[in-house]
């Protein structure tokens, strides 16, 4: 019976992640429209986009290999796997003990690797350019995110997400310089990893500046729908990963329905606030030159490293 409840919670969380991710992306778009004085298309617009793409035909280039066809499913599938491992609505997850936080980052990296391969697979100039840029960004963000995560796991005394979230949720709110540094680094990394503004512009279709868009330029129909949906889930997951590591208060500890409902409610509020913060950062900044990215992500790495150092020096 106990195992059955856990499996039920697990499935519930996966559904919540898959279903709510487009709404979160839509919410961020709506806020962005407000800050820029434009009329928004509403929170539901990403759902309509995905539905539209699913009914359209798929056009594939003649020289596309199996990688090109396989990648959309891998991107979507890996995002769902991560979504069932991160403690989002409950701290008792059936699958969570199978993967710690380093595995989560590795799964994201695998999806990114295949995405870059698929970008180069067709052999168009933009795909290759997007892939090479994406890999450059990845090589700079991954050290930073791992350092930020090491800081959090030092403080939580484990690399398991459940342990970290429990340690933070039970501990009293203390001023810990290391966690603050790691938190700032994490925000910078999330901006870079999910292709938000100083690094990449999610709404651009100007060939010379795009990174993520350039890689998926050749996709159409349900493939594109899966990739876009996967990207939304990835964005959603990075934010919830941040919440699980840095602000885990309110995630349900017990299995009863009331707690889980409260937990979902709190999650929606936290996501709403996190989206607003991200939009404020995005609106306040202009897109950076590609070669200035080393400095931006270098700063993220520095913050994360200072977090680790501060843990040893000051705590």
């Amino acid at each position: 019976m106990k195992a059955l409840t856990l499996i039920f919670i697990e499935i519930l969380q996966a559904i919540v992640v898959i279903a709510l991710a487009p709404a979160f992306a839509g919410w961020v778009d709506v806020l962005k429209c407000w800050t820029q004085g434009r009329t928004s298309a509403g929170v539901m617009q990403p759902y309509r986009n995905i539905a539209k793409l699913f009914v359209k035909d798929v056009v594939i280039a003649d020289n596309a290999s199996w990688i090109f066809r396989f990648t959309p499913y891998l991107v979507f599938g890996s995002a769902v796997v991560v979504g069932s491992v991160v403690p989002i609505i409950s701290m008792n997850l059936f699958l969570a003990p199978s993967a710690d936080i380093i595995v989560v980052i590795a799964i994201f990296a695998t999806a990114r690797f295949f995405m870059a391969l698929a970008g180069m697979d067709i052999g168009t100039a933009f795909g290759g350019m997007g892939a090479s840029r994406e890999m450059m960004v990845a090589s700079l963000t991954e050290p930073a995110i791992l350092m930020a995560i090491f800081t959090v796991s030092l403080a939580g005394r484990s690399t398991s997400l459940l342990h970290i979230a429990r340690a933070f949720a039970s501990g009293a709110l203390v001023l810990r310089p290391s966690i603050v540094f790691a938190g700032i680094a994490f925000v910078l990394v999330v901006i870079a990893e999910t292709g938000r503004i100083p690094v990449d512009n999610p709404s651009t279709h100007l060939e010379l500046t795009m990174i993520h868009e350039a890689m998926i330029l050749e996709y159409s129909g349900r493939h594109l729908a899966l990739i876009e949906w996967g990207a939304m889930i990835r964005f959603f997951l990075f934010v919830t990963l941040g919440i699980a590591c840095f602000l885990p208060w309110g995630i349900a500890v017990t299995d009863n329905a009331g707690d889980i409902a409260t937990s979902v409610f709190l999650m929606v509020i936290k996501l709403g606030i996190a989206g607003a913060v991200l939009v404020l950062i995005e609106t306040g900044l202009a897109k950076m030159r590609l070669f200035r990215l080393t400095e931006f992500l270098g700063a993220a790495f520095l913050m994360a490293t200072l977090g680790v150092i501060a843990f040893f020096i000051l705590e």
Binding site: V174, L175, R176, P177, S178, V180, F181, E295, G298, A299, L302, L306, A310, L314, E315
Partner: peptide, 20 residues
């Protein structure tokens, strides 16, 4: 003591910010 070490961290942070 925690406030003290937090401020120390901020001093270090501004030092790095000046460097960059």
């Amino acid at each position: 003591a925690q406030v003290n070490s937090f401020l120390a961290a901020l001093v270090l942070l501004t030092a790095f910010a000046m460097l960059s």
